[in-house]
Write a protein that binds this DNA or RNA. Structure first.
Lengths: 114, 114
DNA sequence: CAACTAAGAACATCTTAGCGC
DNA sequence: GCGCTAAGATGTTCTTAGTTG
């Protein structure tokens, strides 16, 4: 059994939010119309009561300045890679990607492993 | 402005589905209780009529053997990196990650750029 | 068999109001 | 100010049935 998606999302959301030094209310104000009470939605996501739809997830990612995919990264290495990857120039990304592809080449049916 | 999340998701979903050689119906059967008519849901996601919630997205990712984050990768480099990264051993991932971090180090406020 | 669409039933989140620290 | 919760209003997806190439 793998960890639930809601748990992953909650973990990444909270990590990114605290990294940016935002309160649940402050972040809620950035993605909700209601600037004062938007914290409720953030709280529900972090408590895994409700699940953000993908539009909300995208708005959160933008407000937090992290890649959208980061919020869905199943393991920490993947998450860190997404953060670092986002900071690179197009050229740097290409070089790193080629290296990853070279390493991955020749392996069969081992995708998505832990 | 950036492409909508639903469009990104639809693109990745279709790419992964065709990569695995599955029809909408076949994939629908893997994630829906209704083995015969599950194709409708897949179709709605690919046509961007409905949006998958994160639990459905995770089920799709597992059925397609791709990382969940892949389905939310905003650009193709990011998507390819996630696919390659998933095939690596823990050790290989660490090495690549360190390299990415080294490259990213010293940059300020340039995260999440195109 | 493939992709696709319509419409009501069923289910989720969102908003408002409020709690205790 | 902070995190957190309840409950009805609101808006969504899901299922069933069907069309088309």
């Amino acid at each position: 059994m793998s960890t639930s998606v809601a748990a992953i999302f909650a973990k990444r959301l909270k990590a990114a939010r605290t990294l940016r030094g935002l309160s649940q209310r402050a972040l809620g104000g950035l993605v909700s119309d209601d600037k004062a009470n938007g914290s409720v939605r953030i709280n529900r996501y972090e408590q895994q009561v409700n699940r953000a739809d993908m539009d909300t997830a995208a708005a959160l990612a933008e407000a937090l300045n992290v890649p959208l995919a980061y919020l869905f990264a199943e393991d920490d290495d993947q998450a860190d890679m997404l953060l670092a990857f986002a900071k690179l120039t197009k050229t740097e990304r290409s070089k790193l990607l080629n290296q990853a592809k070279r390493l991955a080449a020749g392996k069969r049916g081992t995708a998505n492993k832990a």
